[in-house]
Design a protein around this nucleic acid. Structure first.
Length: 505
RNA sequence: GCGGGCGUAGUUCAAUGGUAGAACGUCAGCCUUCCAAGCUGAACACGUGGGUUCGAUUCCCAUCGCCCGCUCCA
């Protein structure tokens, strides 16, 4: 068998996803909607498989901790819309709604409150500078502009204090001409809506930009209703919404996406140990669903890209995947962040509810636990699975096949009567009805066998069971393996066992 | 958000100021005892809205969407 290593083009992957029913543009018949995508019949199976595997790995069969005992994790499913105070406490309302101004000439964007302007009654041109600019730099630029370079002639005023009418006089920090700055625009990445039919400021609410806060909001409820003790985790899978400035790269950065997040609560002294522990576990997870180690990368965040909550602690480490559109670089799949006690502390302050934990294992020490957060993108995970599985093979009729692991494949097997004649079909139907009780399987009767194998290759079905004349004689079927196209015969009674065995891989 | 490119069947493409063709897929029938995506047939498209014009899929404008680069990315 010949295989060609061809650079994978996202266009081909997107086309296959649509053609075979993995992923469609949202509201396709109306021309789509930027940043939104729908999962088709096969896409939803694939997504559910990844989702269920995560839930199992976290909630049903969580790993053994460093002491050899299974760690404690429970699941929740919180509302997408919560009391808006949640997002004030989390920092999403205050910190990320800073008005920005653009420079029409240089295309640079500045936070409005970061610019100071040298104003003067006598001047008709007012140079603007970044607030951290040195006096010497300002004098230099004034000279360049042919203006008096004596700073005492000017009054430094923050851009937020100046009316829009004055913008015509302002010279942007990186240009020489006045009037290039646009009026400030609000940038808030949270979707807003209203709870209740009245569209007023009082009932404004937000669609959650991350599932994590729903977990922090329920931290006390979980402690009071279950028997978890420190350290423990709360896991959640669900949709989140961000008004991305620029959705890009298929479903990689979309405005509606799905997260799989677990908040691990522990004593502050153990944060480092647990962050390393979860980083290892999460890496194993992505490998186990079929992401080859060649395309996976682990990377600690640089300090300047850390989220507001992670600045104080041990930072964030990413698990990244080499997508076709990021190659040779990588795109984030999951971040394992040390959120310190930022969230619980902030909710304690804003809500007035005590978040302290009284730890009997530590001489009744009271503390607000630190949080290690493995936060993975389910949507991104699905994309990574598809990209990883996409294999060009010009030697086979389909020209391409999806090399999903059996456990992730949306269809585990296809049952194919060799001919559509009377003898083969009833046996196939019987096998199909039996198998579908346990596995998502396809029954495909029409057209020649080669065509049907090709079809299954393209959707990544790992096994095809073919019923022929020998089946009638000796009750055996042909198993055809997707990757090798090799065939073997097994007894009809062995088929479910065969599949069950393969699913473990 | 900025700049550039592109929007014709499900997909990949073609042609044209006088309303469109192919390949593959899909569906139906035939054929087929294991990959020849076979044979025959059928259905299906000019992203949307304006403008110019006797007439626009074609030219112009806007809008929406997609791709690339920059920007952004809790």
């Amino acid at each position: 068998m010949r295989r060609f290593v061809v650079p994978v083009d996202m266009k081909d992957i997107v086309a296959l996803c649509k053609r075979r029913g993995f992923i469609f543009p949202a509201s396709d018949i109306y021309g789509g909607l930027n940043g939104f995508w729908d999962f088709g019949p096969l896409g939803v199976e694939l997504k559910n498989n990844l989702r269920d595997r995560w839930w199992k790995a976290m909630v049903i069969t969580p790993p053994l901790g460093p002491d050899g005992a299974p760690v404690d994790i429970v699941g929740i499913d919180s509302a997408i819309i919560q009391n808006p105070k949640t997002w004030v406490a989390s920092g999403h309302v205050g910190g990320f709604s800073d008005p920005m101004v653009d420079c029409k000439e240089t295309k640079k964007r500045y936070r409005q409150d970061h610019l100071i302007v040298l104003t003067s009654e006598k001047a008709d041109r007012w140079p603007a500078f970044h607030e951290e600019s040195e006096n010497a730099d300002m004098e230099k630029k004034l000279k360049k502009l042919g203006m008096p370079s004596d700073l005492s002639l000017f009054e430094k005023i923050n851009l937020t204090k100046l009316p829009i009418e004055d913008y015509a006089k302002i010279i942007g920090p990186d240009t020489k001409e006045p009037g290039t700055l646009t009026e400030p625009k609000e940038f808030n990445l949270m979707f807003e809506t209203h709870a209740g039919p009245i569209q007023s400021e009082e009932n404004k609410v937000y669609l959650r930009p991350e599932t994590a806060q729903g977990i922090f909001l329920n931290y006390k409820n979980v402690l009071d209703s279950t028997r978890v003790k420190m350290p423990f985790g709360i896991a959640q899978i669900g949709k989140a919404y961000r008004n991305e400035v620029n959705p890009r790269n298929f479903i990689f950065r979309s405005r509606e996406f799905e997260q799989m997040e677990m908040e691990w609560f522990c004593h502050p002294d153990e944060a480092k140990m647990w962050q390393e522990f979860w980083f290892e576990e999460r890496t194993k997870f992505w490998k186990s669903v079929g992401l080859g180690s060649d395309n996976l990368a682990m990377r600690p965040h640089d300090s300047d890209e850390l989220a507001h909550y992670a600045k104080q602690g041990l930072g964030t480490s990413d698990i990244e995947y080499k997508f076709p559109f990021t190659a040779p670089g990588y795109g984030e799949l999951e971040g394992i962040a040390h959120r310190c006690d930022f969230d619980l502390k902030s909710h304690q302050e804003h809500s007035g509810v005590k978040m302290e934990y009284l730890d009997p294992a530590r001489d009744n020490e009271r503390y607000i636990p630190h949080v290690i957060e493995p936060a993975a993108g389910l949507t991104r995970g699905v994309l990574a699975l598809i990209c990883e599985a996409y294999t060009v093979d010009e030697s086979r009729p389909s020209g391409v096949y999806l090399n999903f692991t059996p456990a992730m494949a949306p269809k585990k097997a296809a049952i194919l009567p060799l001919t559509a004649k009377e003898e083969h079909v009833p046996i196939a139907q019987k096998l199909y009805l039996e198998l579908r009780e346990e596995f998502p399987v396809d029954l495909d009767i029409k057209q020649n066998i080669g065509k049907r194998y090709a079809r299954q290759d393209e959707i990544g079905t790992p096994y095809c069971f073919t019923i022929d004349n020998d089946t009638i004689e000796d009750q055996t079927v042909t198993v055809r393996e997707r990757n090798t196209m090799a065939q073997e015969r097994i007894h009809l009674d062995k088929v479910s066992n065969y599949l069950r065995e393969k699913m473990k891989g």
